[in-house]
């Protein structure tokens, strides 16, 4: 009885996180803010659903698998968020008028100019280590 109550609370909590993400996807104005909504069911929602599974089965041996399941989500979802966000930013899939502050704009512009200058005299110079290497890395390719 008690486990049923706990399991239902956890499952409803997990489902609620998906609902919140859905509302966020509909309501938020641009790609980058929608990304925030998309990460939520992946982290907290999944944790709640997995916790419900753990309580329901009550098996200690299942616990490590569920933990791994959550951990690998934690490891992979920021990486995909970075890839989508980075590409979205560089391909101008964002609404700049919604940003109150943008500290990346100058860096990316400078990196693009730097890269263009580097490629002209030296040909295919490849990536060299430097402060601009990170943000400038694939600026040309992504645009």
């Amino acid at each position: 009885m008690l486990t049923d109550v706990i399991v239902s609370i956890l499952l409803i909590g997990g489902a609620f996180m998906s609902l919140a993400a859905g509302i966020g996807l509909l309501r938020f104005p641009d790609l980058l803010s929608r990304m925030h909504a998309a990460t939520k069911p992946q982290v907290l929602g999944l944790l709640l659903v997995l916790a419900a599974l753990a309580v329901e089965t009550g098996s200690w041996l299942l616990l490590p698998v569920l933990f791994l399941c959550w951990l690998f989500q934690l490891l992979t979802s920021p990486v995909s968020a970075l890839m989508v966000g980075r590409t979205g930013y560089r391909t101008r899939h964002l609404r700049r008028e919604l940003l109150t502050l943008d500290e990346l704009d100058d860096v990316v512009e400078r990196a693009i100019v730097d890269q263009a200058e580097r490629q002209r005299p030296a040909g295919a110079d490849g990536a060299d280590a430097g402060v601009q290497d990170g943000p400038g890395g694939s600026a040309g390719a992504a645009r």
Binding site: T39, P78, A81, Y89, V131, D133, G134
Partner: peptide, 14 residues
């Protein structure tokens, strides 16, 4: 990135 409300857009390792 995992805490909703902020995520990493770009990393400058240098």
């Amino acid at each position: 990135s995992l805490v909703p409300g902020s995520f990493v857009l770009e990393v400058d390792r240098g």
